[in-house]
Write a protein that binds this DNA or RNA. Structure first.
Lengths: 137, 137
DNA sequence: CTGAATCCCCACGGATACTG
DNA sequence: CAGTATCCGTGGGGATTCAG
């Protein structure tokens, strides 16, 4: 997502530091935000994967985005890359200790998601049925 | 984010259904993905809030995005809105039961985020220091 | 005070072609 | 195999204005 720092420096003088609420969460949210990071992490939870293995395991991801996603996860210290200078080349991706810790954190969220999937879906249906004409959100 | 369903129907016949991994998580990820949903939910965890209270509590959010975010959260059944037809008008936002459940789920993620904030930051510094010329990711 | 409507920028990300 | 480079469409979201 690449959230630029709050630009206007909050004109209304806030009594409590907003950083108490969101600061720090941003770092994680920026990873969850893009389309692929979580999927890559989940796939790597199953074990070490090569580039094309990740590519096959994650339907729809382009080579470009797989490269960008792994790079960003490496930068955040979630993923470790090992290159074997063979011919043809081989590179292994695996979760770091922090990466596994992160995957555990999102696993609970995934559980919640599965448990409430139908409830969310029905809530949306209800909403959409009640206002068919509106094209907001 | 509005993730379109996996388009190519996985040309390479995958042995295991990719939907086992991501399906269902998407619904939640689409909420976490945007810049503001989580912040709004976290703020509402503290209690019922009026529109301008949310606006002040969440630095940087525009009126437009606050409206869109609350609407989407309402559609997902996370937030309930109460309008008092006074003059000037007053509207209260509060979490539903599912909304509170959701906030509990992301609370653990927020904890993880705070605990690893410095580790992530230092990892990024390390990365950026090692390759100053690269402008990827 | 609580929005709705409009304009518009730009970052995310897909498609494609090229390289070691 | 494992990327890199380039072009380009789409939509998320900021700024601003109008309305009840």
């Amino acid at each position: 997502m690449t959230i630029a720092a709050p630009r206007t420096a909050s004109g209304t003088t806030n009594t409590h530091d907003p950083c108490d609420d969101d600061c720090g969460i941003r770092d994680v949210l920026d990873r969850l935000g893009d389309r692929w990071s979580v999927l890559v992490v989940v796939e790597l939870t199953k074990g070490t994967r090569r580039f094309h293995e990740l590519h096959r395991a994650i339907p729809g991801i382009s080579q470009r985005m797989l490269t960008l996603t792994t790079r960003r996860l490496m930068r955040d210290g979630m993923v470790q890359r090992t290159v074997y200078p063979t011919i043809p080349p081989q590179t292994d991706y695996r979760l770091t200790t922090m990466g596994r810790s992160f995957s555990a954190a999102i696993a609970s969220l995934a559980d919640w998601s599965r448990q409430h999937k139908s409830a969310i879906a029905s809530s949306r249906e209800q909403w959409d049925a009640d206002r068919p004409a509106r094209n907001d959100l």
